[in-house]
């Protein structure tokens, strides 16, 4: 079972880019919706319009979100997430700290730190969009690690 995806950039009629103007994309989304939405078509044209609009909606949902967009672009280039040795080391240490945390206070402090780091990676991700894809691969993998750490910390906090 593998998923099959369309060319989202082509649907919007724009070249592939990570550094997108979301406001302009939204404007285009509304224009295309008015043009293709099945509600605005004759009954005989609705099935085709439905298909087209579902692809447009899928494209809008993916491209408007920087993280989904980044994953999508890597997928298009058949690239997986690839952390740098620095990131691996940093994450390894964070994980140790989390495992060694004994009190609830310590866990909560780690949780706060992780949330702040997640925010930083999201900003770094936006900046990486003007660089090459290897930077994107590294930051997205870091983000994934942080998310996993947040989930396990929250799990520990709820026990």
């Amino acid at each position: 079972m593998t998923s099959v995806r369309n060319d989202f950039f082509a649907i919007f009629g724009i070249p592939e880019t990570l550094d997108l103007d979301v406001a302009a994309l939204q404007k285009r989304f509304y224009e295309l919706s008015r043009e293709h939405h099945p509600d605005r078509k004759k009954p005989s044209e609705r099935a085709e319009a439905e298909q087209r609009t579902s692809e447009l909606n899928d494209a809008w949902r993916t491209l408007r979100d920087p993280i989904k967009r980044a994953h999508y672009v890597l997928e298009r280039h058949h690239l997986n997430l690839q952390p740098t040795p620095d990131i691996l080391e940093e994450m390894f240490e964070l994980n140790m700290e989390r495992e060694e945390a004994e009190t609830r206070d310590q866990l909560e402090a780690i949780h706060r730190r992780l949330l702040a780091m997640l925010q930083q990676t999201d900003q770094a991700l936006a900046q990486s969009f003007t660089q090459d894809l290897s930077a994107v691969r590294a930051i997205l993998s870091k983000r994934q690690y942080i998310q996993n750490l947040i989930a396990s910390t929250e799990n520990a906090l709820s026990n």
Binding site: M1, S3, R5, N57, D58
Partner: peptide
């Protein structure tokens, strides 16, 4: 979502997705 090995859900279309919404999967 669809059922996968071990009774786990593989999510195809997330809640709050604009409709019409679609997902395509390959099966063998």
């Amino acid at each position: 979502g669809i059922e996968t090995m071990g009774g786990v859900v593989s999510r195809l279309i997330h809640r709050n997705s604009t409709i019409p919404a679609s997902a395509t999967e390959q099966f063998t």
